[in-house]
Structures are given as structure tokens and as C-alpha cells.
Design a binder for these strands. Structure first.
Lengths: 211, 211
DNA sequence: CGCGATTTTGACGGCACTCAAGCGCCGTGG
DNA sequence: CCACGGCGCTTGAGTGCCGTCAAAATCGCG
């Protein structure tokens, strides 16, 4: 454990709007989010961007870079954030000596795959309202499991970034937010969200399958 | 290497239509495709299915199961297939002793993540024609890199399965195939595909961004 | 306080979904 | 060998969800 502590002792601060790393740069380290909020997005050659994930405290970013030893997406801070740098070479060595760390690392990569499959399901088969209901309840849970309120939170990302993540336009995101508010599911004040009726929000998911 | 050979010596045959494993069953082994063709799909609680991947020779399936030590998707043979069974516990042990194997294993998981991000980009930002052009050129490359023809191949999956993978209905898949045929990009006879103009097929991707 | 960025809202249109009918291929059994 | 049935595929007509374009409103930052 002492060795693990030593491994992650280097901190790195990233201000809002700054890149933690860019696609194409070589992989030196993974990063664990210590505080703050970030997004990752893949960029297609024609310039299209797709947000693949939002990251918060406790999550590790950069796993996609292992395959080619270079990053395949941009990761940007959406608010001032603090990261633990984890030199990847050293991590691989350590996992050889510490089976529990190895386990943990493998599970982390696998969890990322499972998460991505969930997003694929969302993008491939849900309507706009379902996507957004899923997004909001998911965020709510993630905040809750970190000790923050599940009912009330602040969105760190723009409507456009939400739209990109969910495969929708920013206008559609905005409209669905308004509709949810009219229905009394949530209260929206700019980026401040209050969830009034989680149960009905959850029940939206799976209501109107698209195919 | 001898120990690795020993690790994967058990073979398992799966006939067309049979499950290699089902979501919820405990993870015992990963499987490498030795021959044949399979699909994996996640199932939402409301019954919706989403094909997350098609697998062919040389690819390893089951990586999603590591996170919870149980499978999170169904994997089904689309034609009679032969698998190498890789007991996961033994694999983890071996990777501790053989750094090159460890490397290889980590890259494999990471590659899966990168692949999934590509699918998310496809599902989140491409129109139907682009998705299908991407799908066809991707399949073509995968066949080519295995020594088969890049121009001519047999689809092992139904239009519905293609549609599920691409977030489209089977009718849309069928219509786009017909349109591509009219345009002279491809020739379609049921599941037999011949690619006539890869260049123009590729150039379709990125033409009409959706957002 | 003023400007740009972000968000909301409206009007409109099109792409892809839905529903439906018909066809073709293939395996099965007489 | 052929008739039959079922599944998969194609094609058409119509519709609706969501994208596009546009403008106004609001926020937040300097």
C-alpha cells in the first residue's frame, strides 16, 4: 500500500478549459480524478466531436491510451480539477507484485467496457426523453455515491456537451429539460438541477422503445 | 509460451444459434475465437436488445465480465464456431510472471474500449448511410486482415442484427443496401456482399454530418 | 455595465421509423 | 423430387420525432 501511495503521489492541477491530454500524444500516465469534473471526447477526422464520458472524483482516465501507447481522445477540465498522476509503466510493474492491485486494475478496465456498452444501448435504442432521463438519474446516483445530494446538483457541462454525449442536439436537450420541468419531474435553473420525482423519471426509461 | 499454450488448450465448439454464455452467469473463462462468427448483445430490463459487437477469428470475448465476475451480455454463435477457453484466474496468474503477456492483455482490454468509443461516435453523430458505409468498410478490413477477400464476403448476421448494432431498423438497413447497389457502390445478393467501389464508400463517411 | 456565450423557444422540414404487403430463399417432410 | 411453410428480406406509403435554422432572452464574466 505504501508503494501504491508512492506511485500516485504526484498531483496535477488542470484549470477549467485546459486539456489534461490530447488525442495523439503518447501515454505516460493514467490519471485519477481527485477533485473536479472533466469530459473526454473523440474527434473524427472530419471534425465531428463525440463526448464519450464525463469524469468525476475517484474515476480514472486514460485507459483507452494503453492499446497504442497514445491517447485516442481529448480530456478537458470542465471545472478546475486536481488529478493524481499514475505513471503507467510503474503501475504495470506494481500490479505484477500485488495481486489485489492487479485485480482492481483489471476490474476498472472492464467496468469501463461495461459502461460503454450501456451508452451504446442508450444511443442505439432510446428516444430523446429516455436518454435524458437516464442521463439525469445516472448523474444523480454518481453524486449520491460520493456523498453529495442526489436531488440537487450543478451541471458542469453545456447543453451542447450533454447533447453530444447523448447523440442529440443542444436544442433537443433544452426542450426536453423544459418538458420535464412542465411535467414536474425536475426543476431547472440554468445548470442547477433539482430532481423532484425520481420514480417517474426512472419510469420514463423503457416506456417508449424505439424499435 | 509453453505455459500459455497449456493455458488455452481446451477447445469448445458452439453451434449456430447456441449461446457461448449468457448475461448474469459467473465468469469462469474468457474465450478466443478460433473459427466462426459470433455476436454479443446487452439486454435492457424492458427486453430491448442492443448488439454491441460481432466477433471473428482471433478476437477475445468476455472482457466485460471481469468487472463483476459475471457476464453482462449474451454471446451467441452466428455460425458454427470453435473457441479456445482461457480460464481467467490462471490467465491473471500467468500475466504476473510474463510481462509481455501482461502487456498484451492490457492492450486487448484497452483496444476494446477504443473500439466502443468508435461505435459511440457512429451511433451519436452519423446518419444512416454513413453508419452502414462505416460498417461495411470495417467488416471488409477485418476480413482482409485475416487473409480473406476485402471485396467479397458473406454476412453472417441478419439485417435486424446489423440494424441493432448500428442503431437502425432492419428496413433502413435494407433500403440503404439497395440504394448503395443502385449507386454502384456494392452488389448485394442476400447476405453475399461484393464491394465495387471502396473509395466512394469511404468518402460517404463524413459527408453529411448530423449535428 | 456591456458583450459574448449559452440557453430557450418557435417554425419548419426531412430522415428514419412504423405499419403493411409481397417476395424469395431454404429447409422440411410428404 | 416437389410442395409447403416459415423466416428473412424488400419495397411502399405515411407519419412523427428530432434536426435545422432563426431570433430572442438570459447568464456570466471581465
Amino acid at each position: 500500500m505504501e508503494r501504491v501511495d508512492h506511485l500516485v503521489k504526484v498531483r496535477r492541477r488542470v484549470k477549467r478549459g485546459e486539456y489534461l491530454y490530447r488525442a495523439g500524444t503518447p501515454l505516460d500516465s493514467l490519471f485519477a480524478v481527485r477533485s473536479g469534473f472533466l469530459k473526454s471526447c473523440v474527434v473524427h477526422e472530419d471534425g465531428r466531436e463525440q463526448v464519450t464520458a464525463f469524469h468525476m472524483m475517484g474515476e480514472v482516465v486514460g485507459l483507452d491510451a494503453i492499446s497504442q501507447e497514445k491517447h485516442t481522445c481529448d480530456t478537458v477540465a470542465l471545472e478546475d480539477s486536481e488529478m493524481c498522476e499514475i505513471p503507467f509503466g510503474r503501475l504495470e510493474e506494481l500490479t505484477r507484485d500485488i495481486p489485489s492491485l492487479q485485480r482492481h486494475f483489471h476490474r476498472m478496465m472492464s467496468r469501463e467496457i461495461v459502461r460503454d456498452h450501456g451508452v451504446m444501448l442508450l444511443l442505439g435504442s432510446m428516444r430523446a426523453e429516455e436518454r435524458i432521463a437516464t442521463f439525469l438519474t445516472g448523474l444523480s446516483q454518481r453524486f449520491a455515491s460520493r456523498g453529495y445530494s442526489a436531488q440537487e446538483f450543478h451541471l458542469r457541462m453545456t447543453r451542447e456537451e450533454i447533447g453530444s454525449y447523448l447523440g442529440l442536439t443542444l436544442e433537443t436537450v433544452s426542450r426536453v429539460f423544459s418538458r420535464f420541468q412542465e411535467e414536474g419531474y425536475i426543476e431547472v435553473h440554468n445548470r442547477h438541477i433539482r430532481i423532484l420525482d425520481v420514480a417517474r423519471l426512472r419510469s420514463l426509461v423503457g416506456q417508449q422503445p424505439r424499435e
